Simulated assay, not measured.
Amino acid sequence: MSNHQAWLPLINFIRQHYGVAEGLIPLHAPCFDEAEKRLVVDCIDSTFVSSVGQYVTEFEQTVAEFTGAKHAVAVVNGTMGLYLALKVVGLQPNDLVLTQSLSFVATANAIKMHQADPVFVDVERETLGLCPDSLNAFLAEQTQLKNGQCIHRQTGRVIRACVPMHTLGFPARIDQILEICNQYHVALVEDAAESLGSFYKAQHTGTFGKMGVFSFNGNKVITTGGGGMLITDDTELARHAKHLSTTAKIPHAWLFEHDEAAYNMRMPNLNAALGLAQMQKLPAFLAEKHQLAQAYQQSPGLVMIKQPKNAQANYWLNALQCESEVERDAFLELCNGQNIQARPLWTPMHQLPIYADCLRSELPNTEWLAALVVNLPSGVKCHD
Rank of each mutant, 00 (worst) to 15 (best):
S2L: 11
Q5W: 02
A6F: 00
P9F: 05
L10H: 03
I11V: 15
N12Q: 15
F13E: 09
H17P: 12
Y18A: 13
P26Q: 05
L27Q: 06
D33P: 00
E34K: 15
L39H: 05
V40S: 05
T47D: 06
E60H: 11
E60W: 10
A64P: 00
E65N: 10
F66I: 09
V73R: 12
V73L: 07
V76E: 11
M80W: 04
L84V: 05
Q92V: 04
N94H: 13
V97K: 08
S101D: 09
N109M: 12
K112A: 13
M113A: 02
Q115C: 01
T127F: 00
G129E: 10
L130W: 02
S134R: 01
A140Y: 02
A140N: 15
L145M: 04
N147T: 03
R157Q: 15
V158W: 03
V163K: 04
F170Y: 13
A172I: 04
Y184I: 10
Y200T: 02
Y200H: 14
A202P: 07
Q203S: 14
T205C: 15
K220T: 02
I222T: 10
G225D: 02
I231D: 06
T232G: 02
D234P: 00
L237K: 10
H243P: 09
T247G: 02
T247E: 14
A248F: 07
A248R: 11
L255T: 08
E260Q: 12
M267H: 05
L270Y: 11
A273H: 04
L276K: 10
A277N: 07
M279N: 01
Q280R: 10
K281T: 11
L282F: 03
E288A: 15
Q294N: 15
Q294F: 03
A295T: 12
Q297V: 07
N314L: 07
N314E: 02
E323H: 05
S324P: 13
R328M: 13
R328P: 00
A330S: 08
C335L: 14
L345K: 02
T347I: 10
P353T: 02
A356I: 00
C358T: 03
L363D: 09
P364Y: 01
E367T: 13
L369E: 08
A371I: 13
